[in-house]
Design a protein around this nucleic acid. Sequence first.
DNA 1: TCTATATGACTGTTGGGTAAGTTACCACAG
DNA 2: CTGTGGTAACTTACCCAACAGTCATATAGA
Lengths: 203, 203
Amino acid sequence: MVRPNAGTKGVPRLDREVQILDIASQQFGTLGFAATSVAAIAEKAGISKPLIYNYFGSKEGLYEACLDRGGAIVAEEIERIARGDAVGIERGMQTLGGMFTLLEPQPYLWRLFFDTTAPSTGPIADSVALYADRIGKLAEEGVAELMTLAGNTDELDISAMTSVWLGIVDSLMDWWLDHPDETAEQMIQRCMRLLDALFGDHA
Amino acid sequence: MVRPNAGTKGVPRLDREVQILDIASQQFGTLGFAATSVAAIAEKAGISKPLIYNYFGSKEGLYEACLDRGGAIVAEEIERIARGDAVGIERGMQTLGGMFTLLEPQPYLWRLFFDTTAPSTGPIADSVALYADRIGKLAEEGVAELMTLAGNTDELDISAMTSVWLGIVDSLMDWWLDHPDETAEQMIQRCMRLLDALFGDHA
DNA sequence: TCTATATGACTGTTGGGTAAGTTACCACAG
DNA sequence: CTGTGGTAACTTACCCAACAGTCATATAGA
């Protein structure tokens, strides 16, 4: 039987993997794990489904690979900023700015770590937890610092405030996805203005 | 053929509908639309799947019914508070308090309106949009008020701030779901303390 | 007997995952 | 400079489980 396209493209595995990860990250990040189909990713990449399974083993394996690639750069950037000497709100703003700059071409990467439709058990949950924890830990550390300065060291308060902070970052990333023409710099300026509106000396 | 249970329960339709809506709302609200299966709802209710289809027509119809029931009370409460004379942060805190009190037994109801796994086209999207808009409009109105007081009337700024505000409510509801022993009153007190930590006169 | 309440058993589709084979290319023996 | 065998890249066609949705039928009570 004639299979006119089998094996004829000759794209090296590593190149193909990068291409697949780019497309998969975008799909997972915008639609969520559950709503993303492997077949759709294959079609967007112009290849067949089995090639993806050959390279990544399973849908979860593919998601994990996306996480590993995206998580590394995001966590490193946040850690870099955490090593600086900014504290409280200032540290928060620096972190936000770092995220905007880092994720300028692909704000959806942020959502990989907090996708509620990802499986909550199995190896993927561990992997998600790893990065979510790594990011969450740093967030919690920053929040705890701020709260301590304000004289509040209640653990549940800190936990709730961390959740709120991550929710704020989340919603800003969502908003950015809905306004793709905004540059990172514009987002940073906008956040400054929002902060001003909250903390400026008005009644 | 023997069907020992068919038609023997004699539960009036309205009672059954309420029971189904209770269970469905909880499942949709905690797992999301996509991850919830009608069969699972039927099993939890101790009835069969066709009865649900008989009463609600489709999975989307069931979701819509959940929305209508939940949306009505949530939107009304927010509107009630909006009619009051609180403005700015104060109005925000009152709204939060109202939500906590209203949703004390079922914080997951909040998530029905902002479920990203719900279909984005068709009648369900309209229904979701209806309530999300109704809630979003009031949020935007409150945010615009606050921003105007601070001298900022930029539309995109207001849009972003509204998104952040809804994200804050969202993350507090999520946190509450993870800490089911907290009472509404405790949540309100906690939010007060978080607000203090942010706006108190510390360095 | 008529109607509301209810069900077991089915269908069709979607989507994750797989088996088996095809094509191109490269290394190397003759 | 040719065959020949191994391997990497790739595909078609399929399997199977989960799940939305349906049909025909059964029970109980007015």
